[in-house]
Structures are given as C-alpha cells and as structure tokens.
Write a protein that binds this DNA or RNA. Structure first.
Lengths: 211, 211
DNA sequence: GTGTTACGCTACGAGTCGTAGCGAAACGCT
DNA sequence: AGCGTTTCGCTACGACTCGTAGCGTAACAC
C-alpha cells in the first residue's frame, strides 16, 4: 500500500557483491564498497541485510543452482560429472572464498547457519536424490529398503562428495581433475555396491531423526 | 649475539589466541585483545606474525597433533576411530571456526596457504599412512603396486575422510556420531576392498604428477 | 491527489588497523 | 663486569570500517 522495494536494486546489489568478491575477496569486502558499486546508499544495504555474511550468502546462493546432473549412462559417470562440475564452480574465486568464510561465521551464528542450509546445502541434495533414483532405475543400486535408511545414505553420499571435493580443492589445494574424479567415482561406486546389498552390519542404534 | 625472543611470550600469545577464539570467535577476535590477554604489547604481535590469519594458524596447528590412530584391530574400526576423534576435535569451538576462516583467507593468500598446508594438512596424512600400512599388514588391503598410485590413493582417502567429516559437521550441521561413523567406515572399507584388486578400470589418462 | 514507504545523503561516535618513535630492559659475548 | 645488540612496552597516530540516526525527497498504491 505504498512504495515497494526496488527489485532492480536487489539485483544490482547482489551483482555488485559478486563482483567485489572477485576483486577483493572476503576480508577486504566492505559494505560501503558494495553500496558504491551498486549505486545505492549504504543504508539501503543495512535495511535489507543484517551484515556482510547474510548479504554474501544470498549473493552466492544462486551460483549453486547452475549445478545439474545430466544422465551420463552409469552411476560412475554421473558421479564423475557432478564432481567435475562442482569443482568448476569452486574454482571461481567468488564461490570458494565466500563459501568457506560464511561457513566459518555460521559456526557462531545460528541464524546464518539456517540461512546457509536452506539457501545452499539443502537445495543441492536434489543432485544426490536424482543420481540415486537413476541408478536404482538402472539396477545399479538396490531399491530402498526403508525410507529412514535411504535418507541416511543420501546424506552420507552428499557429505562424501561435497566434502571430498571441497577438501581436495581448498584445503589440500590440489587440482580436482579428471583423473581424481575417476578415482573418486570408482571408490564411491564400489563402496555403494558392496556395502548396500546386506543391511549395514555394524549399525547398532540409529534414532529416526527426521528433518 | 643479543637478546633472543621470549619463548614464554610466544606460548602466552598462542594460549591467549586460543582462549580469545573460544570466547569471541574469529570475526570478533582482534589483535589488541590477544595482546592484552597475553600481557604483551600489540607491537610484539606484529613483530612476529603478519596478521590475524597467520597467528591463528600457529595457535590452532598444535591442536591437530592430538589426533592419534590406536590399533583397533581392523581397518573398519580404525576408520571409525579416526572419524570420531577428528569430529571431537572439530566440536571444539576454537578449531571449527578458525579452521574454516583460515581456509577462506588462504584462497587469496598463497603464503598463508603454504603455512596452513605444512602446519596442519600434511602433518595429518601420517594417520592415513599408518592406517593403510596397518591394513596391508593385516591383509585387508593389497600391497602397493607402484609408489605413484599408492600416493594417489593416500591423498584420495585423506580428502575423503577429512572432507566428509568437516562437511557433515560444519556445512550440513548434523552430528558426527557413532552411527554415522559406522556407516561411513562401511562404505569406505567396501570401496577400498572392491576398487583396488584390479587396477582401476576407467582411468584413461593419469599424468605422474609427483609431489 | 494523497498517504505511505523506500530511498539517498550526510554526519556521527566507536572501534580496529598497522606503523612509527622512543626509552628501558634483557641477553650474548668478551 | 662491561659492552653491544636486539627485543620489548608504551604512546600516539592517520586511515579506515562499522552500524545508526536524522532529514528531505521521490516513487508507488490506492
């Protein structure tokens, strides 16, 4: 019933944030700088976001939506594909720097952690769900025995893939190339194939823990 | 041939850094605060470290040395053990926050990246090397075919374990408990057992790439 | 048109940064 | 003991960023 917030300004601010991240990195990025690049007042930024972390989460979240999982004909090939495209995404300076910095901040800020999870993490689990369903349709993986264990394994595979790629690229600092992706996929596919058929033997207690 | 730097001051500074990290976290940690806690002048800090990141790397590096790999009788149990002790280390507020923040900074600072690698990353590969040698002695894993592929697989396993645990704990934000560790170990051991015996089939090109 | 709201602008106190300059104290060496 | 060298504590400094407040103006819905 009055003037609405400018969607164009939102877009300009997020673009400016990404551009500033590429040039300056996380630590030298300032709110005033982003405001100047976007052609808005600094106060406008603080009217919409609580601080640098929240702004960067929104600016970077959309980049993760470009990840896709084309059907490459086998589970092994699908894993290779997602590893390489995730690595390509992490190779861009604005994603790697800001993702790690936001994760660091989120260890002390519950609101930021929730925002990060629903804007980035949970949305990418679809890739694992897709790949898993596809492999089951091909007969490469057995169908779900029960929903709880299916969810558990989906989470496990997600943390495995994303964690390993991030660690290789950003912590170990070595390239995620085709050779590495092939070795990783071989290991993962073999593990899934061998570990699944019998119900996982040594898992004594597992509270349902629905999300 | 003159006054040496006080080792006691070094120790007091690093202790103060860890204490400040616990209380304040990474973003609110200031050099002046650390200096005050340690009972030293701020200039002394800048005489020994270039900035906050370098200081925190040194302060946190020693915490990772507490990781050990007692022989639990099987590869599966050894993996479970290292996963849980690494998770316990990451549960401490000073490690999780600062590790991620330093990794974020290191994506833009080559000197910091080197420092991080040799102070933290490379020193922990010993755990994988130990566990691997032990499993080979037990006959759970085949002996090394050639040194290059052995090194490649060591790196892969290292990134897999460390990456998955970090991702689960800090990004997904879910607990690394015994059930998860058991599921992870089952998958990893199965993958290693199945993928290894025949030379990895779909690895077309693999430049030697010695480190 | 009119009312409501977002926006741009300026200014502000508080806090941090990293450095410079100084005198004093601590240590190795002879 | 005496000397030379280096570290250390202290103070002060300009530059910068932060996050907020206040105000007048412009844009939009009704």
């Amino acid at each position: 019933m009055a003037r609405p917030r400018s969607a164009a300004a939102d877009c300009a601010i997020l673009d400016a944030t990404r551009a500033a991240l590429v040039e300056l990195g996380w630590s030298k990025l300032t709110m005033g700088d982003v405001a100047a690049r976007a052609g808005v007042a600094k106060t406008t930024l603080y009217r919409r976001w609580t601080g640098k972390s929240a702004l960067v989460v929104d600016a970077v979240a959309v980049l993760f939506d470009e990840l896709e999982l084309p059907d490459r004909g086998s589970l092994h090939a699908d894993v290779e594909g997602v590893v390489l495209s995730f690595a390509a995404l992490l190779a861009r300076p604005e994603t790697s720097t800001s993702l790690m910095a936001v994760v660091a901040e989120s260890t002390r800020d519950a609101a930021l952690r929730d925002r990060l999870r629903c804007a980035v993490v949970d949305r990418q689990k679809r890739l694992v769900l897709d790949g898993r369903a596809r492999a089951q349709a091909r007969g490469e993986l057995p169908p779900d025995s029960d929903p709880a264990s299916a969810a558990r394994q989906t989470d496990l595979v997600f943390d495995l893939i994303a964690g390993a790629v991030v660690h290789r690229a950003l912590v170990s600092g070595e390239p995620v190339d085709e050779a590495w992706a092939a070795g990783f996929a071989t290991l993962l596919v073999a593990g899934l194939g061998a570990a699944h058929p019998p119900a996982p033997p040594p898992q004594p207690r597992t509270p349902p823990e629905p999300c």
